[in-house]
Amino acid sequence: MNNKIAVFRKEHFNAAHRLHSNKLSDEQNAVTFGKCNYSNYHGHNYDLTVRVIGEIDPITGYVIDTKILSQLIKDHVIEKFDHKNLNLDTKEFKNLNPTAENIAMVIYTILREQLDNRYELKIILYETERNYVEYPC
């Protein structure tokens, strides 16, 4: 019998970005990314769900203390990205197109470094109410 259980923590941050690839011409960027390629950037209200899977600790009854998980997310993700222009204000996206897919992978990498390897980790990032990504899948 599998004794693993999933714990979810939902957080929120706001950020601006511009989708643009240096590997495409200006015309190709405009066609590929549409309004998301406007040179003055645009913003999103991102909803972030972090899923941690592990076994229940027999002493605490927790997989992971959600207060600790929340603080890790706030310290290492929210503080880094909230109310920032991802293209201009963060080192993670200086040379990486800040698509929802890439943002989710960056968040995963950041949090993976903070969590014990006994935990499985999954990131679900909503860019809009209708558009979201999941990593890994």
Score class of each variant (00 low, 15 high):
Asn2Asp: 12
Lys4Thr: 08
Lys4Ala: 12
Val7His: 08
Phe8Lys: 15
Arg9Tyr: 09
Arg9Gly: 10
Arg9Glu: 07
Arg9Ser: 05
Lys10Ala: 14
Glu11Ala: 13
His12Trp: 15
Ala16Arg: 00
His17Ile: 10
His17Lys: 04
His17Thr: 08
Leu19Asn: 03
Leu19Glu: 05
His20Gln: 02
His20Cys: 02
Ser21Lys: 03
Asn22Tyr: 13
Lys23Leu: 15
Leu24Lys: 07
Leu24Ile: 13
Asp26Lys: 08
Gln28Ile: 02
Gln28Val: 04
Asn29Pro: 04
Asn29Ile: 12
Ala30Thr: 07
Val31Cys: 07
Val31Asp: 14
Thr32Asn: 15
Phe33His: 04
Gly34Phe: 11
Gly34Asn: 12
Lys35His: 11
Cys36Leu: 15
Asn37Ser: 07
Asn37Arg: 01
Ser39Ala: 13
Asn45Phe: 07
Asp47Glu: 10
Leu48Val: 12
Leu48Gly: 04
Thr49Cys: 04
Val50Met: 06
Val52Gly: 03
Val52Asn: 02
Gly54Asp: 11
Pro58Ser: 14
Gly61Ser: 12
Gly61Asp: 12
Gly61Thr: 14
Gly61Cys: 01
Tyr62Leu: 10
Val63Asp: 03
Val63Leu: 01
Asp65Lys: 08
Asp65Asn: 13
Thr66Gln: 13
Ile68Gln: 06
Gln71Leu: 06
Leu72Arg: 02
His76Pro: 06
His76Tyr: 09
Val77Arg: 06
Glu79Ser: 13
Glu79Lys: 10
Glu79Ile: 08
Lys80Leu: 14
Phe81Met: 00
Asp82Gly: 05
Asp82Tyr: 02
Lys84Arg: 04
Asn85Thr: 09
Leu86Ala: 01
Leu86Cys: 02
Asn87Lys: 02
Asn87Leu: 04
Leu88Phe: 07
Asp89Ile: 06
Thr90Arg: 02
Asn95Gly: 10
Leu96Phe: 05
Leu96Lys: 11
Leu96Gln: 09
Ala100Pro: 00
Glu101Thr: 04
Asn102Val: 15
Ile103Arg: 06
Ala104His: 09
Met105Arg: 14
Val106His: 11
Ile107Asp: 06
Ile107Pro: 03
Leu111Thr: 10
Leu111Arg: 05
Arg112Gln: 12
Glu113His: 13
Gln114Ser: 03
Leu115Thr: 02
Arg118Ser: 09
Lys122Asp: 03
Lys122Phe: 08
Lys122His: 09
Ile123Asp: 05
Ile123Phe: 02
Leu125His: 02
Leu125Pro: 06
Tyr126Asp: 11
Thr128Ile: 01
Asn131Lys: 15
Tyr132Asp: 05
Tyr132Thr: 03
Pro136Tyr: 08
Cys137Met: 09
